[in-house]
């Protein structure tokens, strides 16, 4: 699909004086499942917000040759950057098919919008199969399970033909089996796309991450493979409070009840 990489350089985001992200640099390439982790308030979601135009950021975020920062939200999307939110946000009153049809529709002419839909787009069928939602075509999105809603969101990104998928806590609230299914799905779709995942779930991260960036208080704390990051004493200090306990097993659960309810409309 694309060889272009997402390269973020010296990204800074301030909210009236408070530095939420203070000079973060990282990159993500097609073919890897890239993770962005860190404790609460580390600036993970803010990074995504800045890349997608929801928050104002300085520095640079480039997709291939194209600069993303400073563009309007919907124009960034049209360059191929798609995202999900911490709380699944699908169109509850519409069916799964209608949700996906809208996601697939940004290339349509205004006139074709005035006609009713006939049949199902091939790209939609493919995405349904990929995410295992084929049986839910006519289901109202509002009554899907939490996990299915997250998959529907990923399916929407697929039909929208996003080159970059920015996923904000895609497995929050999911059962163990659903997490595994999601992780495998991400690995599949990452083959041709850039996948960047913001997560708290260390177990999920360890199982599916190719490369990890750890953020702490708006700065990059550590970067590398899962093993490298876990061996980093700075990371252990942030997550455990003491540098002594080197058992990475303790990292497996980082409870963060606030995250799920954090507001997502920050404009």
């Amino acid at each position: 699909m694309t060889d272009a990489s997402l390269v973020v350089t010296d990204l800074r985001v301030e909210f009236s004086g408070f530095v939420a992200v203070g000079g973060v640099s990282f990159d993500a390439h097609p073919g890897e499942v890239r993770f962005l982790i860190g404790p609460n308030g580390a600036g993970k979601t803010t990074c995504i917000d800045a890349i997608t135009g929801l928050s104002k950021g300085t520095g640079s975020a480039r997709l291939g040759e194209k600069e993303l920062l400073g563009k309007q939200v919907h124009k960034i999307v049209r360059l191929g950057v798609g995202r999900t939110f911490q709380t699944a946000s699908v169109f509850d009153e519409l069916t799964v098919l209608q949700n996906l049809d809208i996601a697939a529709g940004r290339h349509r002419s205004p006139i074709s919008l005035l006609r009713a839909r006939r049949g199902v787009d091939p790209s939609i069928e493919q995405a349904l199969e990929e995410t295992g939602l084929s049986g839910e075509l006519a289901t109202q999105a509002g009554i899907l399970s939490h996990g299915q809603k997250q998959w529907l969101e990923i399916a929407m990104l697929l039909v929208q033909d996003a080159k970059v998928l920015l996923l904000d806590e895609p497995v929050a609230g999911m059962s163990h089996d659903e997490r595994t299914a999601t992780g495998e799905l991400l690995q599949r779709i990452a083959a041709k796309r850039i996948v960047l995942v913001v997560e708290h779930d260390m177990d999920f991260m360890r199982r599916f991450a190719t490369r990890v960036t750890v953020l702490h208080q708006g700065k990059v704390l550590s970067q590398g493979s899962v093993a490298e990051v876990q061996a980093d004493p700075k990371v252990q200090e942030v997550y455990l409070g003491t540098a002594g306990a080197a058992t990475t097993a303790a990292m497996s659960v980082v409870p963060e009840p606030v995250a799920a309810t954090k507001n997502r409309t920050e404009d």
Partner: peptide, 13 residues
Amino acid sequence: ATRDAEERVRFLG
């Protein structure tokens, strides 16, 4: 869709 989740529509381009 726009009525129910305007932000989401924006993020679909």
